[in-house]
Amino acid sequence: MKVLLTTIVDNVNYGTYLQAYATVKLLKDRKCDVDILNYIRYHLTPEHMLSKVKNKGVKSYLHGLINIVLDAYMKRNLKKFLLQKNKVTPNFSDWTSFKKTLPPYDLYMVGSDQVWNTEHNHGVDGVFFFEGISGKKVAYASSVGIESFQKEDYSKIQTLLSDFSKISVRESFGVEALKNLGIDNVTQVLDPTLMLSKEDWRKIGKKTFRKTEPFLLVYSVEVNKDNETIAIARKIAKDRGLKLYLISPYVKFNSKLKVDKLFSLADTDTFLALFQEADYAVVSSFHGTAFAINFGCQFVTVAPERFSTRVQSILKLLDIENRYIHNINDIPPFDIDYSKVNNLLEHHRAVSETVFDSLIQN
């Protein structure tokens, strides 16, 4: 079966490429031939990013140009993890023109990540619905990310999803958001990264980390909450006698962070290697939470500024909602019982496997 997958592949974010890799692996394991749409959303194109600083003076222009170069470098640094063993289409930003060049596929799959988050994507993005394409369309673990859609988007989303034969989403909130549109045939499933076991990820990762001391790992996509997240991590590390490590795909300076080890501009393989060895993790990220769970790491998730439904949903599914904290006073005094968590994870993994199999059946 020849499959065309659309998902987010233009972020500076480890989870973006890990979820895409996992989805492709699930398809390949079922003997599918997979192409990934190499879509660059318009608001993330260099041209658009530069236009925002074009008329703001020389200093702003040069600063913007430096950021664009760094952004391109970091995306390439992370994306190579996905490109090493997988096929992608030529990159594009104009769907209207690009879809005319596509050959026919047996299956059109919308993947995970926040593909249906209309705030995150600056509106209803037709690429993530295969708008204008005829053929069998399905969705696996598509993330809505918000609790409800804007009413002005109801009609368009209803029309686009009426073409789908089967729909599954990543969050319970996504199920409810679609039900509010009158779409009832929706199933909640695991994010594709959780469909692979920790043993699978150990085989996939190309790097190992030589651990010389017990450490707490900090990973956050909430840049504005760095100080709060690190303060929480520092308290936990002190209480547990752990060194403090931080990983980021961005440029970070330890003069501000003051951690024991800083992994700045780190690639995706380094992310996997560190999560495998961490004794504790403080995260503010859905996929940081997912990999802490999958590797059996003690952790807390610091509440993000927005789109919190993604994390809350997986924690509720695995009955560990107490790991979701808002401030330093919320740190739970007890550890996670992973015997219970792993039993629930295996159950939901089996359910999600059945759903995934049903998506690719003729």
Rank of each mutant, 00 (worst) to 15 (best):
L262R: 00
N77H: 12
V12C: 11
L315K: 00
T289M: 06
L65F: 15
K25R: 11
R234S: 05
D226T: 12
L344D: 02
D239I: 00
N254I: 13
V221M: 13
G241E: 11
P249F: 06
S197V: 03
L78H: 07
V9M: 05
L160T: 07
H122A: 05
S112K: 07
E353M: 12
T89A: 09
V355A: 02
V189H: 02
N13D: 12
F215R: 00
E119Q: 09
F253S: 13
E147R: 14
F271V: 09
F92T: 08
H347V: 12
E119C: 04
D200F: 09
T101E: 12
K203F: 00
V282D: 01
Y219R: 08
L246D: 00
L317M: 15
G288T: 00
T6Y: 02
K52C: 08
A281T: 14
I320V: 14
V189P: 04
N91Q: 14
F129W: 06
G57N: 00
A281G: 11
D279W: 03
S162P: 05
S264D: 10
S248H: 06
T96W: 02
D279M: 04
E199G: 04
D239E: 15
L62I: 14
F128T: 05
D191A: 10
I68E: 14
A72M: 13
S143Y: 03
R306D: 12
R306G: 00
V169M: 01
N91D: 15
A237C: 10
N180L: 06
K80Y: 11
L4E: 07
K52A: 13
P333C: 05
V144Y: 02
I157H: 07
A290Y: 03
E171F: 08
R76P: 03
N254V: 11
L50E: 13
K340C: 10
M74Y: 12
N343W: 01
M1H: 04
V3G: 04
I314C: 09
P90E: 14
V34T: 08
L190P: 01
C32F: 01
F263D: 02
N342H: 10
K179D: 10
L265H: 12
D335I: 05
F149S: 09
I204R: 08
I325K: 08
L190F: 04
L44W: 09
T309M: 03
